[in-house]
Write a protein that binds this DNA or RNA. Structure first.
Lengths: 214, 214
DNA sequence: CCATAAAATGAGAGTAACTCTCAAAATGTA
DNA sequence: TACATTTTGAGAGTTACTCTCATTTTATGG
């Protein structure tokens, strides 16, 4: 599942593209050039002030090419390719483990992988999602997509129909809760560990609100 | 709160604009003309094929005016002005009543009001939200906005900080669950009563998933 | 190594949703 | 009726995105 600030595949180090043809390697380089240009420009000017033309210029490709690699501007900063991996990971968890513990485990995995990759980019994504409606919206869409995988994992565990309203509502309430966790993190200046916030969020999703104020 | 397919204020019948000046009355008429034109065109051609220019033509105003009344195309079909009313209603519920029951009550109120107003439009909104990403996205934004009001009501009831991650996550999980309910309703051809689906959704949000498959 | 197929790129034209500005028209008020 | 205020329309400009087609670049088989 989307760890809310997901980057590339957790296991894709720069070294793992060995016997790819020149064509494929070039494509990867272009993709990364576009992304790097975009992050750079956004850091300098902000999201809205950054145009596709500027991105294309800095990445040394044409605007057409930018759109060939990413369907929309928001996707340049967001796209994560490994949501399916996480869903798989979820399903691979021992059947005896409680649902919440499985989610917790997978979320921690994802966050760790992400931090190992590029913690700054991870924060930038969360920040953009919190600030820019278009980015946030795209992120919600992406997480909802993942929600469909979630449903199946949930349904399997609980012996329910993945298309029942119960499972759908349950899955989406998780998505909503985790999305909000990311927003909270960004809005509060990335204070503390994201994993700790996720733990607190999962507690709420499991048990509801704590009974009394501390 | 957004009853997922909200229309105008539940209490605004055509008769309730009595001693408004000519100016105000005209504005309301223009607003409704734009909306009517939009719904008509969408029904005929679909959302994407309907342009602002066509809408302006049919409503007999200029495109500029359309944008003056609605900030974006999606807002023409969505805008509901009474989310705050629902939040107020929520807070007005007896303090002894359980949180879930309060939400249930208010949701039923909203759905009823909506059905009384224009059930076809209510369905059309849900349908568009399910089909058109831009509309769905705008709806999520709108519900999240409402979420902020929700937080306060929740915090008040539970004696918690409305800005704590716990309350935020809890509120957003409700939003997510109710949003999904609307999608489910639309995707399944509006079969059955929306209120019944909402009840089932709230059960899940309160108690988690049912233990066994029927 | 060369010819040829296949894929990727760039250039350019086109669309549609907005935004801004300014002058004209409609309305309210004295 | 005159004047101030508000609302509207017209038009120009920006930008994200789409489509098409010619050109370049890479892969492949002889």
């Amino acid at each position: 599942m989307n760890p809310m600030t997901a980057a590339r595949s957790p296991y894709s180090s720069p070294a793992d593209r060995p016997q790819l043809g020149l064509r494929e390697r070039k494509k990867i380089k272009t993709r990364e050039a576009i992304r790097a240009a975009t992050y750079g420009l956004i850091k300098e000017q902000g999201y809205d002030a950054t145009t596709i033309e500027q991105i294309a210029d800095r990445a040394e490709v044409s605007p057409s090419t930018v759109f060939r690699y990413f369907p929309a501007k928001e996707d340049i900063v967001l796209t994560d390719e490994y949501d399916p991996l996480m869903a798989e990971e979820l399903r691979a968890r021992p059947a005896g483990e409680s649902w919440i513990d499985s989610v917790r485990h997978v979320m921690h995995l994802a966050i760790d992988a992400n931090n190992r990759e590029d913690p700054e980019v991870a924060r930038m994504r969360a920040h953009l999602a919190a600030q820019v409606p278009a980015v946030r919206s795209r992120m919600v869409e992406s997480m909802s997509q993942t929600g469909r995988l979630l449903r199946e994992a949930i349904a399997e565990r609980h012996g329910l129909d993945p298309d029942s309203i119960e499972v759908r509502v349950y899955a989406m309430s998780f998505i909503g809760g985790l999305m909000e966790t990311s927003m909270y993190w960004a809005e509060n200046g990335f204070k503390g560990e994201l994993s700790d916030l996720v733990d607190r969020a999962l507690d709420v999703l499991e048990h509801g609100l704590p009974t009394e104020k501390p």
